[in-house]
Every structure is written in structure tokens, then in C-alpha cells.
């Protein structure tokens, strides 16, 4: 699905990723854990194609194609989805209008039939129910005045609508209480599929109790320093990052 080789990335001239390599397999859930400042968010932004992240070396191959050559919107149409840690608020655009515009833009880019307003409404309603996204939320301006939990649920609703091949969840657990976390995790688990991979980025092991990964990678100082099964997450929780990782000098 996704192969990152020796990736070097700088932001404002500062080196953040320093030779990161990672392979995400089709249909699997990979977790990336790491302390603050290790480069977790940078990795997610580079995958989604955010401007200002300068790739100075290495490669990212996504389904046989060079991901770094694709524009942000092209990546979305080809199945890359980033659930953001801080979804932006956009006053003046209703949530429903946004969902419709985005889904149809992706469909158009893939040469598929676009959905009309009625079809869209039906589809959104069906998916929104499971995530407890209310009709009222859909009528409000995008993310404006939403609680932390509502914002994260809306991110997962988008994931359910867009049906990405490669979903990246950036600190989806941040700012959520345990009930909100369970609801979001249930939503994510429902979207597990044999042709869908996920990259779950998190600081804490807690989220991985609910979204159980197939593989865990530890990111520190811009590199993957350790890999293992789901038990690695527990080990990190128990001993802390400092004991598990040998920070490269």
C-alpha cells in the first residue's frame, strides 16, 4: 500500500524527519507512537501534501505511484485521508455543503458519477447515525462551535463517506474523554476493511486499547527506532519512551 524510504523532511530549514522508513501493508492497522517533537505530525502532513514541508531526500511510493509528485487534492481523490488533530473551523460553509462539495470533487477527479443533493443527504444521514452526528451539526458552519469530540466524530464521518484506501489518524485521541474516545474508536473499527490501511498516530497507548493495531512503530528524533506487534505499545506505556528507545546521538 505505502512504502516510505529514507525520508528526510525540513520545515523552515529545520530538519524534522531524518531518514524515516516505513512500510504499511494493505488492510492492516499500523500505529506510530512517539514522544512530543519526534516528527509524528510532520509525517502525517507530508503524506497529505501540506505546503511548507520540504522533502530533501527519500521517497514515498503509494500503490506503485510516486506520492510526492501528487497535489494534495489528487492524493485525496486517490484514497489518502488525514483525520486531523485540529480540524479547522470554517464559518460561512455549512457542514453538509462541505461534505457534498468534497465527496463530489473526489468523485469527479476519479471520473465517477457525482451525487445529487438527495442522494447525498441519504448517504450522510445513514453514516452520521452511527457516529452520533446530529442533523443540527450538519446544518451548522463547518466545525464552528463544535466540541472537541464533535470535531473528531466529524473527521471520522468524513472517513466513512470518502472511503479512503489509506487513512491517517493524527492524534485522534487528543482532547477526548473516555466516552468520546470509545465512540470515535468504534467508528474507526467499523471502517476496518481488507483493502483499507490505517496509520494511527498517537502519543499514548490508551487509543490502541480500542483500535488494536497489527503493528507498532516507534518514532523518535525523526526516525523509526523500533518496531513490533501490539505488545510494544504496552511495553512503552509501562516503561516510558526513554527506557524503550535508545535515542540516536
Amino acid at each position: 500500500m505505502l512504502e516510505i524510504k529514507d525520508l528526510h523532511v525540513s520545515v523552515d530549514g529545520k530538519k524534522i524527519l531524518k531518514g524515516l522508513s516505513l512500510k504499511v501493508e494493505t488492510g492492516k492497522i499500523h500505529a506510530i507512537m512517539g514522544p512530543n517533537g519526534s516528527g509524528k505530525s510532520t509525517l502525517s502532513y507530508v503524506l497529505a501534501g501540506r505546503e511548507g514541508y520540504e522533502v530533501t531526500g527519500g521517497s514515498i511510493i503509494y500503490n506503485g505511484e510516486d506520492l510526492l509528485q501528487m497535489k494534495t487534492e489528487e492524493r485525496a481523490a486517490k484514497g489518502i485521508f488525514l483525520a486531523m488533530q485540529y480540524p479547522v473551523e470554517i464559518p460561512g460553509v455549512t457542514t453538509m455543503t462541505f461534505l457534498k462539495t468534497a465527496l463530489n470533487a473526489q468523485k469527479r477527479a476519479r471520473g465517477e458519477q457525482e451525487l445529487d443533493a438527495m442522494q447525498m443527504l441519504k448517504l450522510v444521514r445513514a453514516k452520521a447515525k452511527d457516529l452520533q452526528v446530529s442533523e443540527e451539526m450538519l446544518k451548522r458552519a463547518l466545525n464552528v462551535g463544535f466540541s472537541g469530540g464533535e470535531k473528531k466524530r466529524l473527521e471520522i464521518l468524513q472517513m466513512a463517506l470518502f472511503e479512503p484506501k489509506m487513512a491517517i489518524l493524527d492524534e485522534t485521541d487528543s482532547g477526548l474523554d473516555i466516552d468520546a474516545l470509545k465512540l470515535v474508536a468504534d467508528g474507526v473499527n467499523m471502517l476496518r476493511a481488507p483493502d483499507r490501511s490505517m496509520l494511527v498516530i498517537t502519543h499514548y497507548q490508551r487509543l490502541l486499547d480500542y483500535i488494536v493495531p497489527d503493528k507498532v512503530h516507534v518514532l523518535a528524533a525523526g526516525q523509526i527506532v523500533k518496531e513490533g506487534g501490539k505488545e510494544l505499545a504496552l511495553e512503552l506505556e509501562e516503561k516510558g519512551y526513554a527506557d524503550v528507545i535508545k535515542v540516536p546521538a
Binding site: 494534495t72 487534492e73 479547522v88 460561512g92 460553509v93 470533487a105
Partner: peptide, 28 residues
């Protein structure tokens, strides 16, 4: 910039994303 990236990462081509944001700006 954040809003623009958010919309593009959801599949809106840059021009369409800009237009949506301008409309949103004028809406009120």
C-alpha cells in the same frame, strides 16, 4: 492557509477551495 489545506486534503482542487472560502468570507 490552514483552511485552504484542509479543503484540499478533502479533495477540493485549489481553485474550488479558494472560491468556497471567498464565498464563506462574503456570506455574512
Amino acid at each position: 492557509v490552514e483552511s485552504l489545506f484542509y479543503l484540499r486534503s478533502r479533495g477540493l482542487p485549489e481553485k474550488e477551495a479558494r472560491r468556497l472560502l471567498i464565498n464563506a468570507f462574503l456570506e455574512e
